[in-house]
Computed example of a mutant assay.
Amino acid sequence: MVASKIARGKVGRPPLERAGEVEERILDAAKKIFLAEGFEGASVDEIAQQARAGKPTIYARFPNKAALFAAVIGRQAARNTQYDNLVPEGRSFRAKLISVGIALIERAFAEETVGLMRTAIAESPRFPELTREISDKARKRATCNLTKIIGELAQAEDLAGEGRFSPDRIEDTARIFIDMILFPMFIRCLLGEELRALKKEVPDHVEKRVDFFLDATT
């Protein structure tokens, strides 16, 4: 009787403190399978086996494979656009902006990020809303987080109340910074240019665009 009660106690949903761990394990497994097999080649059976989780556990959190794929991409984008640990380096305003620009590109060039985004682009004809939603959310999050960094740098330079760095314009300024510096290199990467060659171009690319950015904003 006791053994029966213990066995029954093991069945069901995990405790709340473990629920997040289970979801992370599922997303980690799904990311690995999507990167290796692509969206079409990936199966929920294989993901369940990799995650050591039952299919009902997966479907309780993600109604279908597309929703699981969206969650994987969304988590990766959130990690790449979380800039809390990004510390600008250098003495001058220009040097600090250059270090920020290089850091943004280096994060975007992470192998997992590139692989997942290429998979998402390949599936965009089937799931256009998904690709658009992920792109919009990532851009908004990156802009919001970069606004804080550039705002703090501008304040240290006594530029916070002036022109493009004023409170009502700083968000647009951060968005322009991303559009000028990050996106051109990232798009070239996603289109298949050799990553090693692109990385060699990054310092010069960032320096020239930071100079243009400063000429236009200060």
Rank of each mutant, 00 (worst) to 15 (best):
E17W: 14
E17P: 01
A19P: 06
G20H: 06
G20K: 09
G20Y: 00
E21Y: 13
V22N: 12
V22P: 03
E23C: 09
E24N: 14
I26L: 08
I26F: 06
I26D: 03
I26Y: 06
L27K: 12
L27A: 06
D28Y: 08
D28C: 06
A29I: 06
A30L: 04
K31N: 08
K32T: 11
K32W: 08
I33L: 13
A36Y: 12
E37G: 04
E37M: 10
G38C: 06
F39L: 10
F39N: 06
G41L: 07
G41T: 07
S43T: 15
S43C: 08
V44D: 00
V44A: 10
D45V: 11
D45W: 09
D45Y: 12
E46R: 14
I47P: 01
I47D: 00
Q49C: 10
Q50T: 15
Q50A: 15
A51D: 04
A51M: 05
R52N: 11
A53F: 03
A53N: 09
G54I: 04
G54V: 03
P56T: 09
T57N: 08
T57C: 06
Y59S: 08
R61G: 03
R61C: 03
R61A: 10
P63A: 07
N64C: 04
N64M: 04
A67D: 13
L68S: 02
F69W: 09
F69L: 05
F69E: 00
A70V: 09
A71Q: 06
G74S: 10
A78C: 11
R79W: 07
N80H: 08
N80K: 10
N80V: 10
T81F: 13
T81E: 07
T81L: 05
Q82A: 15
Q82E: 15
Y83H: 11
Y83P: 00
Y83T: 03
D84F: 03
N85I: 07
L86K: 09
L86H: 09
L86C: 06
V87K: 12
V87L: 07
P88H: 11
P88G: 07
R91T: 11
S92P: 02
F93W: 07
R94I: 03
R94C: 02
K96D: 00
K96Q: 13
K96S: 00
K96M: 07
S99T: 12
V100F: 01
G101M: 05
I102K: 09
I102G: 01
A103V: 05
A103K: 03
A103S: 12
L104S: 07
I105T: 05
I105S: 02
I105G: 01
E106I: 03
E106P: 05
R107Y: 15
R107H: 11
F109S: 12
E111D: 14
E112T: 10
E112W: 03
E112H: 10
V114Y: 03
G115Y: 04
M117I: 13
T119F: 00
A120E: 12
A120K: 02
A120S: 08
A122W: 02
E123V: 07
